[in-house]
Simulated scan of single mutants.
Amino acid sequence: MRVAFLMAPEGVEQIELTEPWQAVLDAGGQPSLLSTKPGRVQAFKHLDKADTFPVDATVADSSVEDYDALVLPGGLANPDALRLDAAAVGFVRDFFGAGKPVAAICHGPWTLVEADVVRGRTLTSWPSVRTDIRNAGGTWVDEEAVVCHAAPATLVTSRKPADLKAFNKAFLAEFAALSSR
């Protein structure tokens, strides 16, 4: 299973990258870090700088066909920057168009809102994103992890770092089920 992790050059919440990344590795998958610029991404622990991570490919030079699934980690600044990048938004939209599974945590659904893929779906997020999801036609719920099978693609969402165990379990189960078809 080839899993793209999409993030901006800075602002990703480190634990929302590292724990799902490790979960993919532990499940025998191949994670790949995509960003809007080459080099390294600067992660954060809340508002403080944390580690940096090497970018495997830019989103502009990547194709949905190269991956089986997509993960959108959160962090406040990360999805806010992604939703301003046409290539990143298009990549997310194309994942749904291809019917491939997507998982997003915390503020990550902001990129989904920008890609106009939440209409008619049930999802969760950090509470401050609730109104954006509702305004985009989605149904927001306050749960650890939500799996929405509405066409054209499965969407797994979660609220916050404290929900990572449930998030990882849910998205890995969905990714595995879809990649085994």
Rank of each mutant, 00 (worst) to 15 (best):
G97T: 10
D132A: 10
A104I: 08
D66K: 15
G137T: 01
S128N: 15
G99A: 10
D116C: 00
P101S: 11
D85L: 04
V129F: 02
D68A: 11
G74S: 08
A104Q: 12
P127R: 09
A60M: 07
A87L: 03
T58N: 11
G108K: 14
C106W: 08
D56M: 02
A69C: 07
A98D: 14
L82R: 05
D85I: 06
F53V: 12
D68I: 02
N135R: 13
G74R: 08
A69N: 07
E65G: 06
S63P: 13
A60V: 14
R83H: 06
D94P: 10
V113G: 00
V117Q: 02
P73D: 08
D116F: 00
A103P: 12
R119S: 03
T58R: 15
W126M: 09
A87Y: 05
V113W: 00
P101V: 03
P79Y: 02
K100H: 09
A136F: 00
G137L: 00
I105W: 06
G108M: 11
L82N: 06
G108F: 03
E65D: 15
S128T: 15
A81K: 14
D80T: 12
P127T: 13
R134S: 13
F96S: 01
A60W: 11
G120Y: 01
F91T: 12
K100F: 06
S125C: 10
R83G: 01
D85Q: 05
G99Y: 08
L82S: 05
F53Q: 07
D94V: 05
D61M: 04
T58H: 10
F53P: 12
D116T: 00
A98N: 13
V89D: 04
A60G: 13
G99T: 12
T122P: 14
V102L: 07
W126V: 08
F53W: 14
N135K: 13
V129D: 11
D80G: 07
W126C: 03
E65P: 07
L84Q: 15
H107A: 07
R134P: 04
D68L: 04
A60R: 15
R83P: 03
V102F: 06
P54V: 07
P101W: 05
R121V: 00
I133E: 01
N135A: 13
L112Y: 09
S63A: 14
L112K: 06
D68R: 14
A98C: 13
G74K: 11
F53G: 10
D66F: 01
V64C: 03
D56I: 08
G120V: 00
L76V: 15
D68K: 05
V64P: 07
R121S: 00
V89Q: 08
A103D: 11
D56G: 14
D94M: 04
A88R: 06
L112N: 10
